[in-house]
């Protein structure tokens, strides 16, 4: 039970970087979200220790920090897979058949939306319109865009990732 008496906090190697981020934003109004953006860039997600650090340094209740993080879908509470597959579910893509592609992805990776494969390789996400409607339907893998897809392309894209991974390993 935490009774406020002990305010000791675990330290990690990125502590001072978080402090730097906060120091840079401290004088600007409403800086919490810009700070969280940068802290997430640092860790790849927003671990509990980082939340606590931000709360303490910015003098914002941790409940509010969490409230903000969990409100915005851009902020992640869990680490993501090595390959972030994000399928656009904007209207244009949907009308042009993003649904079956998503089904195929789920089937191939055996995970649902927002989930990461057990081996930590793939995270499947959906997003709302990348604005690449001209290429609909589209998906991105770590920001790289694959457009004008059909569901037959799915296996190839996943294999591409696996091959990249092997190359890196080798």
């Amino acid at each position: 039970m935490n009774r406020n008496a002990s305010g000791c906090m675990k330290k990690d190697g990125k502590d001072h970087l978080v402090e730097e981020i906060i120091a840079r934003h401290k004088n600007s109004n409403g800086a919490l979200i810009p700070v969280l953006h940068e802290v997430q860039d640092l860790y790849g997600y927003l671990p509990a220790e980082a939340q606590a650090k931000v709360a303490k340094e910015m003098n914002v209740p941790i409940s509010e920090v969490f409230g903000v993080i969990s409100f915005y879908s851009h902020f992640a509470l869990k680490p993501k897979g090595k390959f972030k597959i994000s399928i656009c579910m904007g209207t244009a893509c949907y009308v042009k058949g993003a649904g079956p592609i998503l089904d195929k992805l789920k089937e191939n990776l055996a995970i649902g939306i927002g989930e990461t494969t057990a081996d930590g390789q793939f995270t499947l996400e959906e997003c709302r319109c990348l604005g690449a409607c001209g290429l609909a339907p589209v998906l991105t893998v770590n920001g790289k865009v694959y457009g004008r897809l059909t569901k037959d392309d799915v296996t190839g894209i996943i294999d591409d990732c696996k091959r990249d991974e092997e190359e890196i390993v080798q």
Binding site: N29, G30, I33, H37, V68, F71, Y72, H74
Partner: peptide
């Protein structure tokens, strides 16, 4: 940060306020 509702003007302001 990925919230459609922030396109609504009062929500947008609340978001700018952090």
């Amino acid at each position: 940060a990925g919230a459609f509702v922030c396109g609504e003007e009062t929500a947008l302001m609340t978001s700018i306020e952090g």
